[in-house]
Amino acid sequence: MRPFEYIRPASVAEAVGVLNQRGEDAFVLGGGSAAVVMLRLGVVRPELVVDLGGIEEMRGLQRNGGLRIGALASIRSLELDDGVRAAYPLLAEAASQVANVRVRNVATVGGAVAYGEPQTDTPTALTASGAVVRIAGVSGERSVPLDGFYVGPYETVLEQGEIVAGIDVPEQQPHTGGAHVKFTVGSPENKPVANASALVTVDPSSGACTAARVVMGAAGPVPVVANVASGLVGGEASAERIKEVAAAAAEEADPIEDLRGPEWYKRRILRIVVERALTCALQRART
């Protein structure tokens, strides 16, 4: 690996300070599961690596109404945390499907969000959950909804010197169900052909759908919000209706041909994962 300087700041202020000072020479390291590979391959060649891992204030998961996720919270903690599993099963389900357990132990939620890989499961699920990214910079903190945080593949609204400090997820309405479905070729640890998160709220008396949100991963340059999902609201969301919505959602996507399949196939899989996610989410909302 090429040589670089390394610092491990103890606070957000210290981190953004040094990032601001060193500009493009600096490279942010979260959990490292993607960053260290990039360093090894020479994809990035920074003079300075700023390891955020020592910043206590960016750790942990807090529930007070909503869910406050420290950027350094591991994907695995999202997967295993009892509170998250109870109140945000969609997030826990998505987290449990990311890569392998070694990666999930190390990779951070903040890192997964900031990296901007369009097929990763966590941003899909967070976007579906209405998450807001807390961004720290030298001039303070700003918040940007995750739906709007991504500009393109591996590209976000983060400015030079800014870091993801955390992610806030709003409290879920009662009678809400969520589900995340990932589809891979071969082992489930592999990168997805496509994934989808669905979050559905129902009126328990009528069973009618009062809110529905679907986000698709590996479906375009950024997580793709399926606008058509709102069409479920007000109706009873029958299996037939879900099929139609899933088919329309897949048409909203803009997948590219890659090693995991041609465009037409990815659209087909998007239709299937959206249908499965919606069906499962609805079932969970009703029980």
Partner: peptide, 15 residues
């Protein structure tokens, strides 16, 4: 106690 890939962590991260 957690399984990790030692290839993907810098020494500084295991301080």
């Amino acid at each position: 106690g957690k399984a990790v890939s030692s290839c993907s962590m810098l020494a500084g991260q295991v301080e």
